[in-house]
Nucleic acid binder design. Structure first.
Lengths: 248, 248
DNA sequence: TCCCGACATTGATCCAGGTCAAGTTTTCCG
DNA sequence: CGGAAAACTTGACCTGGATCAATGTCGGGA
């Protein structure tokens, strides 16, 4: 484990306020691992023995059923994932694969549960993170059930801009293929939908998104605080794609 | 508050293991309220000042956006709801309306957060419940994104039977209108879908469900532990309809 | 018990979005 | 670089499910 990794981990909301001794104890039981790109590192149904902390790279959380699969979230550093399964000591509900070569810290879930019981600040952080994750996926479900695919795309694109203080242009944080699956549609349909949005205030060229007429886009997307935020919940890994980056 | 209510509340997973003194303190700050049927008792966006404990009746949790709305869950006694919003001290993401005249205990969320910090067993119960809720809604989202509406209906009907030790017949716990919305489809489509399922092992007559050929139904529904359970998660109010009752 | 309003079913029709099949562009590696 | 694989786009077509409209059925209150 590199020496400059730990401070970053320590700064995560989940670990920030816990006792130093307890943090050290957790870290002592953990180990770091590097995975190549494209590896299924977690298979849904397996026991959740480790909380994962992303240090570097990108991981897709996805679900499988029958032959089908769908993207549930994409995790980027620095953040943790699959907290709920660890707390419940239950099998993973989702699979995970690396999108890039990734460095990840594995923290034994037994240790988490133990320290939860004796470190109040840590307990508060855990419960806050879990509540945030829950609320994040509730928002997501609301979007899926209440909006059609065009509205979902429009509000996704608008939401990302808002995260950057209404930046007029930014870069998509993931491939369109993943975005489509995350939004519950096919890549073909996403492609076509994006084209029809050009008349409604947003243009997408490759990975680049340009808001050409914010008012028009807002009219169409009808953003709603209780679905799209501004969203203190989204900090954790409930169910979201990574935040965008401003266009360089 | 009726004297025989409290033991039932105390027996809930959330309160069972906490210190008696702390339980009493919470109860002391709470009060009971009776709502008539059909009342919007929680409006999404309002601050979450109270954890709700259903004693009697039935409540629908639903989400609104634009003119549309959809059912997220139905809560029956004895259980709690909107824990996550209380923990985060954040606005409700869903609205709630009574389906029947309902008796409900309101526990101030500030008190919850306070006792969480000093009662370890309670903290464990809270975090367990939240993790379960999270997992429950993840399952739900997987069902929505991976299955078409026919598969969702088939697995719903099969799942309810399983909850009753594979009972061959049971009564739907909610109106079909609500079931349809919960499953993400229109009542019309649910009606038609049910009809087509008669050739596939299940018959629905009014509120009564009869499994006529379990094997056929299983073939079609392809139940999956990681979506349909058996599901220790579903205890809480993540995102589910109430358990069915065996047909009398 | 009757009647009203809500729920449920059924039929006809429409359309959003999926599927299949080529192309085209981008990305990644040797 | 160069070439193959993957991602993306575009077009044609089809279908699952929504919508609209009409009728049937049930449950609860006067």
């Amino acid at each position: 484990m590199r020496p400059d990794d730990l401070p970053e981990v320590r700064r995560l909301p989940l670990f920030q306020k816990m006792e130093a001794a307890n943090f050290d104890e957790l870290v002592g039981k953990s180990y770091m691992q590097t995975f190549p790109a494209g590896l299924e590192m977690i298979r849904q149904g397996d026991p959740a023995d480790f909380l994962h902390v992303m240090l570097e790279g990108a991981v897709e959380l996805y679900a499988k059923w029958g032959g089908r699969e769908c993207t549930m979230a994409v995790v980027r550093p620095v953040s943790t994932f699959i907290l709920a399964a660890c707390i419940k000591d239950a099998p993973y509900l989702m699979s995970a694969r690396t999108l890039e070569r990734s460095r990840i810290i594995l923290i034994p879930s037994a240790g988490l549960r133990e320290i939860f019981r004796r470190d109040t600040e840590f307990a508060v952080s855990v419960v806050t993170e879990l509540a945030a994750s829950f609320r994040s996926i509730v928002r997501n479900t609301k979007g899926l059930k209440l909006r059609n695919s065009r509205e979902r795309v429009a509000s996704y694109l608008l939401r990302q801009s808002r995260l950057l203080d209404d930046a007029p242009s930014y870069r998509l944080p993931v491939e369109k293929r993943l975005l489509a699956s995350y939004l519950g549609m096919t890549p073909e349909n996403l492609s076509r939908t994006i084209k029809t949005l050009e008349d409604h205030g947003v243009k997408v060229d490759g990975m680049r998104v340009i808001i050409t007429d914010r008012k028009k886009l807002v009219d169409l997307a009808q953003p709603d605080t209780l679905i799209d935020g501004p969203d203190p919940d989204a900090l954790g890994t409930g169910s979201s794609l990574p935040p965008v980056q401003r266009w360089a």
